[in-house]
Computed example of a mutant assay.
Amino acid sequence: MFTVSALTSRIQTQYRTLRKTVHQLDWQRASRGAGLAVVLVSILLVDPALAQQSSEQSAICQSEKLPGMIEGFFQITTGLGIMGLVVIWQADSLGEMFMPNPDQKKGLKQHKRSALKSGVILIVLGPLYSVAGPLMGLPLADCVNLSPW
C-alpha cells in the first residue's frame, strides 16, 4: 500500500522531471530559432557590406591604431574566455565530487560539455575568420589578424 506522503513525493519528483524536460525542449527550440535568425540577418547584412567593401576597407586598413586595437581586444577576450572555461571546468569537477544525487552530477557534466563547446568555438572563430574572411571578401580580414596566438 502507498502512503499519502509517498504518493506526494512521487508526484513531486515526476513533476520536477517533466518540468525540467519541458524547459530543455523550449530552450532547444528557442536556440534553433535564434540561430536561424542570426544566419538570415547575417546574410542580409553581408550583401551591403560587400557592396561598400572598397571604401570601408580603405578606412579601416588605412588607420594606424584601429587594426591593432581590434587585434588586442580579440586577444584579451579570447584569453579571458579560456580562463573562464578553466574555472568553470574545475568548479564543475569539484561539484561532481560532492554531489550525491546522480541527476545533479548529470547536470554538471552537461554544463561542462556546453562550456567546452563554447571554448572550442571561441578558439576556432578567430582563425576561421582570418582564413575564410579574405575568401569571402570581408574588409577586416585583409588587415586584422584575429588569431589569439
Score class of each variant (00 low, 15 high):
residue 51 A to V: 14
residue 117 K to Y: 06
residue 105 K to Y: 01
residue 89 W to Q: 08
residue 139 P to R: 10
residue 14 Q to A: 15
residue 73 F to L: 11
residue 80 L to H: 03
residue 122 L to C: 05
residue 83 M to W: 07
residue 110 Q to N: 10
residue 138 L to P: 01
residue 46 V to P: 01
residue 61 C to F: 07
residue 3 T to D: 05
residue 93 S to M: 12
residue 72 G to N: 07
residue 47 D to N: 12
residue 52 Q to G: 09
residue 59 A to F: 08
residue 92 D to G: 09
residue 87 V to E: 04
residue 95 G to M: 04
residue 25 L to N: 09
residue 128 L to M: 13
residue 89 W to C: 03
residue 114 S to T: 05
residue 31 S to M: 09
residue 6 A to R: 14
residue 19 R to W: 12
residue 88 I to K: 10
residue 99 M to R: 06
residue 85 L to A: 13
residue 133 G to Y: 02
residue 54 S to A: 15
residue 32 R to H: 12
residue 45 L to V: 05
residue 77 T to G: 00
residue 14 Q to K: 15
residue 106 K to R: 11
residue 116 L to K: 09
residue 143 C to P: 04
residue 27 W to S: 14
residue 79 G to A: 06
residue 54 S to Q: 15
residue 29 R to V: 12
residue 52 Q to H: 15
residue 6 A to T: 11
residue 100 P to E: 08
residue 70 I to Y: 05
residue 117 K to P: 00
residue 66 L to Q: 08
residue 37 A to P: 00
residue 23 H to A: 15
residue 88 I to L: 08
residue 22 V to T: 13
residue 10 R to C: 01
residue 43 I to D: 01
residue 37 A to L: 10
residue 127 P to R: 13
residue 32 R to W: 11
residue 112 K to L: 04
residue 125 L to Y: 05
residue 57 Q to P: 00
residue 20 K to A: 14
residue 69 M to R: 15
residue 16 R to H: 14
residue 12 Q to N: 13
residue 26 D to S: 13
residue 31 S to F: 03
residue 16 R to G: 07
residue 111 H to Q: 12
residue 122 L to K: 03
residue 130 S to G: 05
residue 76 I to M: 09
residue 64 E to G: 05
residue 19 R to M: 13
residue 120 V to W: 04
residue 46 V to I: 14
residue 115 A to N: 04
residue 9 S to G: 08
residue 7 L to V: 10
residue 116 L to T: 10
residue 146 L to E: 00
residue 42 S to D: 09
residue 91 A to S: 11
residue 97 M to V: 11
residue 118 S to P: 00
residue 74 F to E: 00
residue 71 E to C: 01
residue 52 Q to Y: 12
residue 118 S to F: 01
